[in-house]
């Protein structure tokens, strides 16, 4: 049993698949996240893959201050990701709503809606910071996420 547990933990650490959700972001953080896949950073060597379907994902990466129109989608997508899962707040917007704080169309910050595990601050954060944040999320995932 212990052998299987450690195998599962290792495989969760070696194969985290991301789902990226834009909850009203200005596209700045999104560009930086995609930059992680390019030859300069190449996160695929860590086993990280950006998946198109939330059903395939382990880590949900949310950017943007959570606008009124994206809230329902955010909740649906969160329910669609199978356990164990981890939520990463990408950039300053999901952490504090940034310059959008106080806007009547914004329902964030993100932790009012979903349990956030890792914050990656920055406007936008550098790809290095994003990879560091995802590494933190991977460690949480290996221990079974927050579920």
């Amino acid at each position: 049993m212990r052998l299987i547990d450690s195998l599962v933990r290792t495989s969760r650490r070696r194969s985290p698949w991301l789902f990226h959700l834009n909850a009203g972001s200005c596209n700045g953080c999104d560009i930086e996240l995609v930059a992680c896949l390019t030859p300069r950073y190449d996160v695929e060597q860590l086993g990280i893959r950006l998946e198109g379907s939330p059903r395939h994902a382990d880590i949900i990466v949310v950017s943007g201050p959570v606008t009124r129109t994206t809230r329902a989608a955010l909740e649906t997508v969160y329910a669609q990701v199978p356990d164990p899962k981890v939520v990463v707040a990408l950039g300053s917007c999901p952490a504090s709503c940034n310059v959008f704080a106080g806007s009547p169309t914004v329902e964030g910050p993100l932790d009012r809606i979903l349990p956030v595990d890792v914050y990656v601050p920055g406007c936008p954060p550098r790809p290095d910071a994003i990879i560091a944040g995802i590494a933190e999320a991977i460690a949480l995932l290996a221990e079974g996420g927050h579920a």
């Binding site: 195998l7 599962v8 290792t10 495989s11 969760r12 070696r14 194969s15 390019t38 030859p39 190449d42 695929e44 060597q45 086993g47 059903r55 382990d58 669609q80 199978p82 356990d83 164990p84």
Partner: peptide
């Protein structure tokens, strides 16, 4: 594919760990 795109690419045990990780996820 990764090497032709100028990337390093996944280590050779990658598909095995992908398989085990997916098996260990809880079905919805």
């Amino acid at each position: 594919t990764a090497r032709l795109q100028g990337r390093i690419g996944p280590p050779f045990y990658q598909p095995f760990f992908d398989f085990v990780k997916l098996l260990a996820k809880r079905p919805l």
